[in-house]
Amino acid sequence: MNQHKIEEITDLLRQHWLKHQDLQLTELLQQLATQSGSDLPLHQVTDDTLFYQLKMGGSEQHEMLPGIAKDCEDDFKTALLKARGIID
């Protein structure tokens, strides 16, 4: 895991753990895994699953991912021109 990813998971976990201070760390991680829809044991849950749940757990089910939303264009022509580097 690179440094940026470690810092990001630490910040996300800190925010979430402050809301659930009564839980142990492993209980908190298992709760996140369960909320994500995973029925795997905690040691088989990927870190990407936990990242996703921490980032998107409180959002609407059909809300677009932030990383995708920033690149989304309503107009196909504009999206195509941006993808080709013709416009910014």
Rank of each mutant, 00 (worst) to 15 (best):
M1V: 10
M1K: 11
M1C: 10
Q3S: 15
Q3W: 05
Q3M: 14
Q3K: 14
Q3I: 13
H4P: 01
H4R: 14
K5P: 03
K5N: 15
I6C: 09
I6W: 14
E7H: 09
E7K: 03
E8A: 03
E8S: 03
E8W: 00
I9H: 02
I9A: 01
I9D: 00
T10I: 08
T10P: 01
D11Q: 09
D11M: 10
L12W: 05
L13H: 00
R14T: 09
R14F: 08
R14K: 11
Q15T: 13
Q15N: 11
K19Q: 07
K19S: 09
K19N: 01
H20K: 10
H20P: 00
Q21T: 12
Q21W: 01
Q21P: 03
D22G: 06
Q24E: 08
Q24T: 06
Q24G: 01
L25E: 03
L25F: 03
T26Y: 08
E27P: 00
L29M: 13
Q30G: 04
Q30T: 13
Q31A: 11
Q31I: 12
L32N: 04
A33M: 06
A33S: 14
A33C: 02
A33T: 02
Q35L: 15
S36W: 07
G37C: 05
G37M: 13
S38T: 08
S38H: 06
L40Q: 05
L40T: 06
P41M: 04
P41F: 07
P41N: 04
P41W: 05
L42R: 02
H43V: 07
H43L: 06
Q44K: 14
V45A: 00
V45P: 00
T46I: 04
D47Q: 15
D48G: 02
T49H: 06
T49C: 12
L50N: 01
Y52S: 02
Y52H: 10
Y52K: 08
Q53H: 05
L54C: 06
L54P: 00
L54T: 05
M56H: 11
G57N: 05
G57A: 03
G58Y: 05
G58N: 05
G58W: 09
G58C: 02
S59N: 15
E60A: 12
E60H: 09
E60R: 09
Q61W: 15
H62V: 09
H62K: 11
E63G: 04
M64P: 01
L65K: 13
L65F: 15
L65T: 14
P66R: 00
P66A: 13
G67V: 07
G67E: 13
I68H: 11
A69Y: 13
A69E: 14
A69K: 15
A69H: 14
A69P: 03
D71A: 09
D71F: 12
C72G: 11
E73D: 12
E73R: 09
E73K: 14
F76Y: 15
K77I: 05
A79S: 04
A79H: 10
A79K: 01
L80P: 02
L80T: 05
K82Q: 06
K82W: 01
A83D: 03
A83S: 10
A83P: 00
R84E: 03
R84P: 00
G85I: 00
G85N: 07
I86Y: 03
I86A: 05
I86S: 02
D88W: 07
D88N: 05
